[in-house]
Amino acid sequence: MSDTPWIVAAEIAPPVQRARRWLAPPTIGRGLLAWVVPALLLVFWQIASSVGWISDTVLPSPLKVAQAGWTVAKSGALFENVEVSFLRAMAGLVVGGAIGFAFGLANGVSKLSEHLTDSTLQMLRNIPHLSLIPLVILWFGIGEEAKLFLVALGVFFPIYLNTLHGIRTIDPQLLEMGKSYGMTNSMLFMRIILPGAMPSILVGLRFALGIMWLTLIVAETIASQSGIGYMAMQAREFLQVDLVVFSILIYALLGKLADSVARFLETQCLKWHPSFQSGPRA
């Protein structure tokens, strides 16, 4: 053994992890690390406002924004408006998402259905849905229907496209195996098609959540009598810049919340997927 020392060296050598250790922070701090940059930005913003680099009429200091937030929160207007916006977003997501999912499934499973509807849907997809706002206002006025329609239309396409894509890219070998092992159509769907398409469907959901907030903000800002966007527009009328900034922050927070929910769904539904497994792999 002594004349072949490299064999010994190879056996003792630790698994290749060195490069990673440099970059990866200690495990406790990893969650906090994401907040370092926002916190620094906030501190810089506060200092810049206090020193007078940024005028209050352009961008009020974080403290003033927080004060404005506290005032609307105390009056109860904040929660009322957030609730209204949240319910609108969810209603649009449920309606548009369900229709998109249904079309995606139907067109993924049935060739007839795909020939019948896919090219029409692809044509409609190329119309920016926000360009319909004038038409929607003419149709529905500025009531709830207008916002529901726009949000539903916005979330329909990402969910539809990704569901369809997920079903189309299912491994045909698995389907053949299922058929050969005597699976009925409903079993094929529940055990192979749906779980196989799930990663793609969840990607669609994440896109849809982004579009959902975007659509709602635009719709509420242009034509609304309640909601966060309406709150921001009201504040603009009275030159309350701090309240406008606060409304924008609320949108950011809600967007982040929606993204976290989507992430949570991914880790729950895709436990089997190697990219979502934390343990060692063979």
Partner: peptide, 27 residues
């Protein structure tokens, strides 16, 4: 069918655990 086929690839369902994959064979 009285026949079962074993393929060149394992063709296991990645989203079902090993026991559930075996149970598929029970039809």
């Amino acid at each position: 069918s009285p026949v079962r086929v074993m393929f060149q690839e394992p063709r296991l369902l990645p989203w079902a655990n090993i026991l559930a994959n075996v149970e598929i064979g029970l039809g």
